[in-house]
């Protein structure tokens, strides 16, 4: 038996909206630690890793580990039937082929119940090596979203070069109408961590990425006020949105390498 009760349906809506365009279906892995998911996009360039720790739910019950194959687009549509502040309860029997979703209004005067069919999904679980990153940049998530949008829409760029030095982080593109760059300097004050740009750097690093993936990752912006970018030479970028202390959505993106 699996049961997980989440105080705000809104969180699940935001998570599904953040990942459903990149991966349309995935296995939700349920264990005593919580709910996790890993999936690659169809072109094998990016990967989504989700963790919702059990302590983010009240209660959370998982008698034995379960793998629930879910069509994320369908689940996102179903979640739209919940009001943002509805209490979400997910339940599944041990050998069930359905996931039950229950939305309860805060005043407890409305209860919606849905049964979602599960599917068998062949998924390759990849081992992600532990990496010491050359640079970890933390910035407001809205700023990251804005930069990705402006460089894509404004310049028509396909590839973005991200160069990180102690002074700041520079995003550059060359596109159909010309070229451009946006540089963010490290902010002095750390009074407001969510509004700061903080660079932790062992050595300068420059990498090239497909901009459209970064724009897709930025759909997770509502999940967190800040985002971190972890970069090392010739390894995938990690873009992480933390959900308070209860979990994260991480996106991994393979770089473009010189021929």
């Amino acid at each position: 038996m699996f049961e997980a009760r989440l105080a705000q349906s809104n969180l699940m809506k935001k998570i599904l909206d953040a990942i459903k365009d990149l991966i349309t279906e995935a296995n939700l892995e349920i264990s005593s630690g919580g709910i996790s998911l890993q999936g690659m996009d169809s072109s094998h360039v990016s990967l989504v890793a989700l963790l919702m720790r059990s302590d983010g739910f009240s209660p959370f019950r998982c008698d034995r580990n379960l793998t629930l194959g879910v069509n994320l687009q369908a689940m996102a549509k179903l979640m739209k039937c919940a009001s943002n502040d509805d209490i979400l309860t997910m339940t599944a029997e041990d050998n069930s082929d359905t996931l039950n979703l229950q939305f309860e209004s805060p005043a407890q005067d409305k209860l919606s119940e849905f049964e979602m069919k599960l599917m068998d999904i062949d998924s390759e679980h990849l081992g992600i090596p532990e990496t010491e990153y050359d640079a970890v940049i933390r910035m407001p998530s809205s700023e990251f979203q804005r930069i990705c949008r402006d460089l894509g829409a404004g310049i028509g760029g396909e590839s973005v070069t991200i160069a990180c030095t102690k002074e700041g982080v520079k995003f550059s593109v060359t596109g159909s109408v010309g070229s451009g760059s946006i540089t963010l300097k490290q902010t002095g004050s750390v009074d407001k961590p969510a509004e700061s740009v903080v660079i932790n750097m062992a050595q300068p690093v420059t990498l090239i990425f497909a901009l459209r993936y970064l724009n897709s990752f930025a759909k997770a912006t509502p999940l967190s006020e800040s985002v971190s970018l972890s970069m090392s030479r010739e390894v995938p970028l990690v873009v992480e949105y933390k959900m308070n202390d209860t979990g994260y959505v991480r996106f991994y993106l393979a770089p473009k390498l010189e021929d």
């Binding site: 990849l126 081992g127 497909a210 991994y252 393979a254 473009k256 010189e258």
Partner: peptide, 13 residues
Amino acid sequence: GSKQASLMSFFKK
């Protein structure tokens, strides 16, 4: 020019 790498070349199955 630059070429898009696959994640599979970094992460093991």
